[in-house]
Amino acid sequence: MDNLIEIKNVSFSFDAEGEKRDIIKNLNLNIERSSFTVILGHNGSGKSTLAKLMNGLYKPTNADGSVLVDGIDTKDETSEIEIRRKVGMVFQNPDNQLVASIVEDDVAFGPENLGLTPEKSRERVDEALKAVGMYEFRKSTPHHLSGGQKQRIAIAGIIAMRPECLILDEPTAMLDPKGRAEVMSIITRFNRENGMTIVLITHFMEEAELADRVVLLSDGEIISDGTPKEIFSDIKTLKSTGLDVPQTTELLYQLKKNGIDIDTDAISVKETAARISAALHLEES
């Protein structure tokens, strides 16, 4: 298998008021190239820390733990820039990621740092803005845009560095439903059409539906790992970790609890409807 990111025996801890706090506990995880992985976890599960370990923003605090990006150890200081270029990262608050007060200048920030020629930078900025559907706003100021639009600009800023992998740390948490849908459709398209490796960190279960693989994180440990269907059918575990269970899945779960023989592995409205129709034999009329 071709792994883009390999996390081996990684722990991450820090001292808070003299007390050692373990955020990530001896964790192993491989991210396959061109895959779409969702890391689900409640607030404080260590999911943001895990994301930052993947592009070397944080380094494992145990000596034998290592994170390899395309074979390069993130502890290797000389490869810092190369790792960051390969693994781009988008954060929760779009406002705090934008550097310049003109959209195209902001998107150019990454390519400029990489030392590309002005012509090359221009090409990548235009390409990235078109990819997120914000090209017509290239001369605008981010302050006048909506949250969803700003988050798309932030994504464009990363895409302009042509990374192999995109890590998104709760990119939709601060957006309204419209902005959330826009961002999700862009991420999915990058994975499906361009084969970009995607690691999406979230606490919205709905967003995990589109992934190839879901990793469930709780208190710094992986407690389950599988396809969305496998993970979602085990609602008890999901709920015990304090996760958001969407009402579709919750509906199926409640019906099952009430003695109806029904599969609980659906999230989308369409599949939920199909499960209910099948279980209640509603199809025949």
Partner: peptide
């Protein structure tokens, strides 16, 4: 947060 985001965009 901005400092981290800038680092992620290869600013040094």
């Amino acid at each position: 947060e901005l400092a981290e985001a800038m680092e992620c965009r290869c600013y040094n």
